[in-house]
Each structure stands twice: as structure tokens, then as C-alpha cells.
Amino acid sequence: MTTIDAPRTPHTPVTKNRRVNWEKWGWLYMRASGILLVVLIFGHLFVNLFLGTGVKQVDFAFVAGKWASPFWQVWDVLMLWLALIHGGNGMRTIINDYAHGRPRQVMLGLVFAAVAILIVLGTLTLVAFDPCPTGADPSLLPSFCPASSK
């Protein structure tokens, strides 16, 4: 029979105050991080590929030189975190839309693991970066290193 049941009793917002509303914050995050990433990525591309002699200038010395400055360290850490979480969250919504049950759990786990590992590795690299490693080819080192041949 196709009788219409009484309308749902006033909806109790289950997510309110108790749990974080992942959908809402996720949605907001995507927009906010998206805008920031546009600035960060285009800034990054502009500095690396456009200023100076362009793409030819990019070598170990160039990167090491940038990462010696806390400004660029923060810039790149931000870019790393925002982009990976942005991408990871995007993958999460796609998986939620199209996968169900066990495959969904597995894929979400893989995405989470990939994002986490990349963030940890990337962050470690950036924070613990030594621009003047001992024993390196002096021609590759930035000019401010004592061993530099530049």
C-alpha cells in the first residue's frame, strides 16, 4: 500500500554540539584551502619558473637557498599540508559517493595512509633540511655554504 505516513517528527539534529560536522567543515575547508592554494601555488610557480632566469635556475642550490629562509619553509609546509588534505578530502568524497561497504573502507584507509605518509615525510624533509650537507658536490651547494664552490 502506498499510504503516506505521518511526517517525520521534528528532526533532532544528531550532529549538533556532540560530533564534529565533517561534511560542513570539509566543505568549508575545500573552499578556504582552495583559495589559499591558488595563491600559494601560483606564487610558487612564479618564483620558481618566472623570476630570474626561469626554469633553468632550479637546482639543488636554488631549492636549498629557498629553504634556508623560514619564509619559504612556512610557504612550502603550508602548500604541502593544504594540498594533500584538499586532495585527500576530494578523494574521500568521491569514494563516499561511489563506493560502498568494504571497498569504501579499504579505499578510504588507503587514501588516509597516503596522505598521512606524504605529509609526515614532506614535513620532516622541510623541517630537518640541511642546505649544506657534508661531503656533497661543492658545485651543487648554495653560495652561502662554507664548502660551496660558487
Binding site: E23, G26, D97
Partner: peptide
């Protein structure tokens, strides 16, 4: 604002 609401 629910899980199955507008954010989907």
C-alpha cells in the same frame, strides 16, 4: 546540515 544534506 546533516550528513545527507546540502554538503553532499
Amino acid at each position: 546540515n546533516d550528513k545527507e544534506g546540502v554538503w553532499r
